[in-house]
């Protein structure tokens, strides 16, 4: 009943950001990505395609920027091996560095307040959820995402992405999206759901390392670590603590400035849940 709803639940939503925001969080899923370990193999991206029923759109549409890769590996040529000489690198790939980029599950996500129909919202797991059925495709959320990590179904991709018998490989745990809706990385919410359900049935808490996302699972160098930030014993929480990176701030004040951890665009006060560890540059050794 709505009045009851107001009286009982409102105080929960009135809590300030310093007390952990508006939710009593059950979990706060987060990631730590060590860029020094990333070799740019794209296994994470491929695993994501397989796990999340992402459509393969074909060369032409990919070139047009209409691809659906929830996780993309960004390449930057920010450093040449011959930093001291002015000679052009022998291969164009020389000095490439890689950055796996997926939805950062921001705790003050800019995509959420702009959606006209509230199709995207924050879950008590600290996830930025997208409700496909509610989405009307105004694409405002994607425009307001500084990472550009939201992907729109520009066509009915499913019609051509999985010709027989490839449709047999679709993951039954989540839907196949039709044209006109926005989608993005969910931190493999179907795996989270399964793990939580299993833990509930066995009457215990979710264990760290019990499950992981498809990208973290596929990474050959274990560059991607996934876990619950609220569990102080989890690997991801330890990494964040070790790198002195905190949630809920827009600027990190580190005791040791040598620590490599950072969050992308955190100065925009969006509070991302993914920490990156900067690559150790060849030039700095």
């Amino acid at each position: 009943m709505s009045l009851q709803n107001i009286l009982e639940n409102w105080s929960k939503y009135r809590r300030g950001a310093e007390e952990g925001g508006h939710h009593k969080y059950e979990h706060r899923w987060g990631m730590a990505i060590n860029l020094d370990l990333c070799i740019g193999c794209n296994a994470c991206s491929t695993a994501c395609y397989a796990e999340n029923n992402l459509a393969v759109v074909g060369k032409e549409r990919f070139a047009k920027g209409q691809a659906m890769h929830w996780l993309r590996v960004e390449r930057y040529w920010d450093e040449s091996i011959n930093t001291t000489s002015s000679v052009a690198p022998e291969y164009p790939e020389e000095g490439a560095s890689f950055l796996p980029m997926m939805c950062q599950q921001c705790n003050s996500a800019t995509c959420e307040p702009v959606c006209p129909v509230a199709a995207t919202y924050h879950t008590p797991d600290g996830l930025n959820a997208q409700v496909y059925n509610r989405c009307i495709g105004s694409r405002y959320c994607s425009n307001n995402c500084p990472f550009r990590n939201r992907y729109f179904n520009f066509y009915s991709y499913y019609e051509s992405a999985w010709p027989e018998p490839m449709n047999q490989q679709l993951n039954p745990d989540l839907s196949v999206r039709d044209k006109g809706v926005m989608e993005k990385c969910t931190f493999c919410v179907q795996r989270i759901r399964a793990a939580k359900d299993k833990a509930k049935m066995e009457d215990r808490k979710v264990q760290d390392g019990e499950f992981t996302t498809a990208c973290a699972q596929a990474c050959p160098t274990s560059a991607i670590v996934f876990g619950d930030r609220l569990d102080p014993e989890s690997k991801v929480a330890k990494l964040w603590a070790q790198q002195e990176v905190k949630l809920g701030v827009y600027k990190q004040h580190k005791q040791n400035p040598e620590k490599r951890g950072y969050r992308i665009f955190e100065e925009l006060n969006i509070d991302p849940s993914v920490m990156y560890m900067e690559r150790v540059r060849d030039s700095s050794i």
Partner: peptide, 14 residues
Amino acid sequence: TGMGVTNLNNPHMW
């Protein structure tokens, strides 16, 4: 067909 025919793409949602 879908919004793709307009040449809209990931950065150019509008």
